[in-house]
């Protein structure tokens, strides 16, 4: 197992009021698996990711990310579009994690250049993020995480702010990089299409308290394209099932 989460609960407490963001999360993710967490907003999926990213502490329970014994960071996060640091150039952003770890200059150079080329930003290396489009910024964020070569990758709705066309392009680019590296990925989204295209396994979450209520294995062979996913009969059934699940979640939280 690459990621083991055991009875993890997170409660936010503020002046006599408490909110159970996550309750009794049990989860095992295998090495090289691409898992999507899908749920309505406010269901605690971001909280779970932030806990794994070391940005938040669980209230009770525990989690473990298995180390492979190599000199690798445990996890790196692909943040939303805003996560690209505006005062660093594209290249400095991609090299950020490597520099923080004080790797030799030649290694930093080489890996940065490699992933800049992979995401097609080598010509824009010296620009500042303000000069980039939303899609290009997100490529920077992806390159930064992959260049860091972590044990697992965490992705927090990285494509949520993009327009439909760019979203498709980036999803497929992400898949092609992922297929080369076979990293373990935990990906948060509220888009069903996105989850179907990317995942080996989709976890559906309920909100308040946030629990994992359903698990769907996606067996469709890779490489996949959005057209194939849309045309596939089983995928359509999955879509309808997930859709009705999410609908009932949102309706339930309203009443």
């Amino acid at each position: 197992m690459k990621i083991t989460i055991d009875e993890l609960t997170k409660v936010f407490y503020k002046k006599g009021q408490s909110l159970t963001a996550l309750e009794g999360i049990d989860l095992n993710i295998q090495d090289g698996e691409f898992v999507c967490l899908l749920g309505p907003s406010g269901c605690g999926k971001t909280t779970l990711l932030r806990i794994l990213a070391g940005l938040e502490k669980p209230s009770t329970g525990s989690f473990e990310i298995a180390a492979s014994g190599k000199e690798r960071p445990l996890q790196s996060m692909v943040f939303q579009e805003r996560g690209v640091i505006p005062w660093l150039t594209v290249k400095e952003n991609v090299a950020f994690g490597l520099k923080m770890r004080h790797l030799p200059k030649s290694v930093v150079q080489e890996r940065t250049a490699f992933y800049l080329e992979k995401v097609g930003l080598d010509k824009f290396a010296r620009l500042y993020p303000k000069e980039l489009s939303g899609g290009m910024k997100q490529r920077v964020s992806i390159a930064r995480a992959f260049a860091n070569d972590p044990e697992i990758l965490l992705m927090d709705e990285p494509f949520a702010a993009l327009d439909e066309q760019n979203k498709f392009i980036l999803q497929e680019e992400l898949l092609s990089i992922w297929e080369e590296t076979k990293k373990t990925v935990l990906f948060i989204t509220h888009s069903i299409d996105e989850a179907l295209l990317l995942s080996d396994r989709i976890l559906l979450m309920s909100s308040q308290p946030g629990r994992i209520t359903e698990e769907i294995k996606i067996e469709m062979p890779r490489p996949r394209t959005m057209e194939e996913v849309r045309a596939d009969q089983t995928m359509t059934e999955h879509f309808v099932k997930i859709r009705s699940h999410l609908d009932s979640e949102v309706q339930g939280s309203r009443t």
């Binding site: 996060m77 805003r82 996560g83 923080m100 930064r144």
Partner: peptide, 13 residues
């Protein structure tokens, strides 16, 4: 913006 602090934390600054 807090997100830059998160980025720095996450990447081990």
């Amino acid at each position: 913006d807090r997100i830059y602090l998160d980025v720095a934390n996450n990447y081990g600054a």
